[in-house]
Simulated scan of single mutants.
Amino acid sequence: MAVAVLAGCGPLDAQDIGVDHLAKSASPKATSKSGGGGRGASPLENPDGTRPGLAPITAAKEKAKARELIEKVPTKKRGTKTGYDRDKFGYAWADSVDDVPFGRNGCDTRNDLLRRDGQKLKYRDGSTCILVSMTLDDPYTGKTIEWRKEKAAEIQIDHVMPLSYDWQMGASRWSDAKRKQIANDPLNLLPVDGPMNSSKSDSGPADWLPPVNEIRCSYAVRFAQVALKYELPVTEEDKSTMLEQCA
């Protein structure tokens, strides 16, 4: 599949490829972190997605809260993918989005997410938006990725609830504005290892989960949070898998 080149804040903001525009890329230079799980907030304490990362949910009481939230998500079978196109969710990483955090703040969505989750941030000279290097603790793999803009695809922005999945579960009937919201809502977005993101494609939790076991309940909660916010169902198989992760 050809690499899709998507503009960000400036001419050098090539390719973020989210889960529906995938590229094969070399593995990033990374080191494994003991324990995995990345840094940041528990999704139960970060319901709008404005805080960084995806911390593990480990306490029994918190797992009970997670299951209670997941139980609220309705289920149905996947619909058809006919008519799906990434462009129907708006220009990739557009800032001109209403009613989502970081929207219309003068910085494109990709750079918003990189600076939300990254550490040791370095910006292009004269810019407070365009990142040229950073360090990311990837929640999916447990790696620390030393990222440089010259190899932008080493970090991709994952749509936790993939856009193709959204389309099949009801977003095909939405307005353009609502589809643009879910595509750029930080609640639905995580910067992660590029090749790992590509391996996910448009899978639901029954078919793909992060390799780091400790993060799987948090991932299931985030998937449920997006589904509930946008009133989307998930498949019965996906819901069952999500509940299992927080058992």
Rank of each mutant, 00 (worst) to 15 (best):
L121I: 14
S133G: 12
R86T: 03
K72G: 03
R39Y: 15
T141P: 12
D137R: 05
D185V: 00
D117S: 07
L54F: 10
P101S: 01
V221D: 03
R39V: 14
G170P: 12
A7Q: 13
D238E: 03
P28D: 09
Y140D: 08
N46R: 05
C129R: 08
L228Y: 05
D95E: 11
G49S: 10
L22N: 10
L12G: 15
V212R: 03
N111G: 04
G83M: 00
T235P: 13
A64F: 00
P47N: 12
D112I: 03
A7W: 07
R222F: 01
A247I: 06
C246R: 07
L22E: 09
L163M: 09
A171E: 04
A60L: 08
S34F: 13
C217Q: 02
V100M: 03
K149I: 02
K229T: 00
V212A: 03
G194H: 10
G18M: 01
N111V: 02
G79H: 12
P195F: 11
A224L: 07
D98I: 00
L113G: 00
R86K: 05
G35M: 06
C217S: 05
R116P: 09
S96H: 03
S32M: 14
Y84C: 08
P101A: 02
A23N: 04
I155Y: 08
D166K: 01
S42Y: 11
K24E: 13
E237K: 15
Q168I: 05
C129I: 01
K88W: 05
G35T: 10
L228Q: 09
G40A: 10
R86L: 00
I182E: 02
K24N: 11
S25G: 10
L189H: 00
C246A: 13
G170F: 04
E71A: 14
